[in-house]
Write a protein that binds this DNA or RNA. Sequence first.
DNA 1: GTACAAAACCGACAAAAGTCAATGACGGGC
DNA 2: GCCCGTCATTGACTTTTGTCGGTTTTGTAC
Lengths: 230, 230
Amino acid sequence: MSHPTSSSQKQVAAALAAAPLFADLSPPLLTALATIAVRAHYGPQQVVFLAGASDEHLYVIAHGWLKSVKIAAGGREQTLALFGPGEVFNLAVLADVPTQATVIALEPTTLWGIPRARLHELMAIHPELAQALIRSLATRVIRLSDLVEDLALRSVEARLARLLLQRAVGGEILRQPWATQAEFATQLGTVPDVLNRALQTLVTAGIIVVERQCIRVIDQAGLELRAQIT
Amino acid sequence: MSHPTSSSQKQVAAALAAAPLFADLSPPLLTALATIAVRAHYGPQQVVFLAGASDEHLYVIAHGWLKSVKIAAGGREQTLALFGPGEVFNLAVLADVPTQATVIALEPTTLWGIPRARLHELMAIHPELAQALIRSLATRVIRLSDLVEDLALRSVEARLARLLLQRAVGGEILRQPWATQAEFATQLGTVPDVLNRALQTLVTAGIIVVERQCIRVIDQAGLELRAQIT
DNA sequence: GTACAAAACCGACAAAAGTCAATGACGGGC
DNA sequence: GCCCGTCATTGACTTTTGTCGGTTTTGTAC
């Protein structure tokens, strides 16, 4: 799946610098990272690694989208996070434990993998790298805490309202081709049927309009109200 | 609440070294930490900080137990984590964002607070400190991921069974005085009534026995079975 | 355009979780 | 020992969520 890249390291370094996580790193550090980064490519639905596997790489996304999911025995899924270009995942590798979730590509995706051992070496030399990783981890903790809050304390409708508010850009949520209702359901911790019902409720209440590739927010205030309740 | 301590820094350093997070740090680093650590004390039910506040300290627990909770408008709580002696919390401070959860002491508790600015200075000098924090953060991510999995994919009964299995030592779960059923309920993401029903189900099934300060596991296999389902 | 598969949608029903009100048990202070 | 407040327990009931079966719509390949 993955293989050493021999493409110009300058290009790789420039690409890495595009990732927010690495944007502030010094040029020599970026070059060092580019030297050890290994490129890998995945197609839609392809599994990067399964929960419980021990993958020794930290991954940076060159382009494409992936999801990190927990899968129950019955097949039901809960997505923990979506990862887009420039984001980093498999931070569990930093704790020396097996991966805790399954990561699946949603579309054609290119990654750079950085082996754990090399990462530790670099961190010892460049404290700024450790800093960057710490920030990344801390924000992940916050995201997960919010997810827990949602699941434990809010109704499906409220969760949906919050998701819409969060994703809306100029009153619109553009849907990637892979963003089916089933995908949304796994993000919200429910099943497609229930999600659909919640959507219809919002539609008939005149709060949103669902179009082909896009959900349009009509009544921002109404949506915010529903995001609070329960 | 908190005030500079003038007690022997050697003592403080020794106490810090007792925390698993800091156990492997070099003596000079421990001394440096001890110099800047500020002691604070909290009583039962006392709030260390509220969600949304900006507390600029990383805390290490000298002794006592605390909980980190999200509180809904209606008053319902979800605990994100319990923290005991030697553990570290308020890692959000590392991401430069306001605290995301409320932290409350469960019993008389002593903390050392380390100001954010000082922490960053020390991290720049001592990469091992950054390493330790990274490990700590990574395990927190894993814990939270498991909590999400529980909430989204498992029934209350299964969650309870898992909690019991996890806490059991030699087939017994000792209950701290503050570990009321209401507390357990907030850890499991439900309400006391429902938790109680789940407990009774396990009792009548002959899987556990509930005594005064202690829950005893009778049928380990049965409990493990119930921990899987749904 | 047709054919097909995937996704969306819908209604009836089942199960799980939450709420409410009331009662019993326990522990600590006096 | 007694009183009182907190915690635990219980049954009846409501609400939310999940399930199942099916139909309609949509997008895509041919």
